Computed example of a mutant assay.
Amino acid sequence: MTIELDKEVRKEAAASIERYFREKMDEPIGNIAAAGLLSFFLEEIGPVVYNQAVADVQERMKARLEELQARVEELDIEVHEEPFQYWRKFERPHKAK
Rank of each mutant, 00 (worst) to 15 (best):
L42D: 07
A70D: 03
L75F: 09
A96I: 08
Y86C: 10
L37Y: 01
Y50C: 08
M1F: 09
K89M: 13
K7Y: 02
V79G: 03
L37V: 05
P93I: 02
H94M: 07
S39N: 10
Q69S: 09
K7T: 08
E23K: 11
M1Q: 06
E82I: 14
A15T: 05
R92Y: 06
L5C: 04
V9I: 15
M61W: 05
A70H: 07
Q69K: 12
E82S: 13
E18V: 12
K97M: 04
E18C: 12
Q52G: 04
A14G: 05
E66D: 11
A55N: 10
E8R: 06
G46V: 00
S16E: 08
V48L: 11
L65E: 05
A55C: 04
L68V: 04
V48R: 08
T2L: 11
E81S: 15
L75H: 00
A33K: 12
A34D: 04
R64I: 07
T2A: 07
K95F: 05
V49A: 13
K97R: 08
A13R: 05
E81L: 15
K89V: 13
E23Q: 05
V48N: 08
V72R: 08
L5W: 01
A13K: 03
K62Y: 04
V72K: 13
S39W: 07
Y20T: 12
M1K: 04
P28T: 03
E44D: 14
I3F: 02
D76I: 05
L42R: 03
E73A: 14
G30L: 01
H80E: 14
M25Y: 00
E23Y: 09
R71I: 05
A13I: 08
E44F: 12
W87T: 13
D6L: 06
A34F: 02
L65S: 03
G46W: 03
E74I: 01
A15P: 02
E73I: 10
V9W: 10
Q85H: 06
Q85T: 13
E43N: 15
N31L: 11
A55L: 09
R10F: 15
F41A: 14
L5A: 06
K11A: 15
Q85D: 08
F90N: 09
R92A: 13
L75D: 00
A70N: 05
E23G: 03
M1E: 05
K95Y: 01
R10D: 14
K95M: 01
A55I: 08
A14W: 02
K62P: 00
D76C: 04
V79H: 10
F21I: 07
A70G: 04
V9F: 11
A33L: 15
R22D: 02
I32S: 10
I32C: 06
K95I: 02
A63S: 03
L42Y: 02
E59Y: 09
E43A: 14
V79E: 15
E12A: 15
R19Q: 09
E82Y: 12
L75Q: 00
Y20S: 08
R88I: 09
F21S: 11
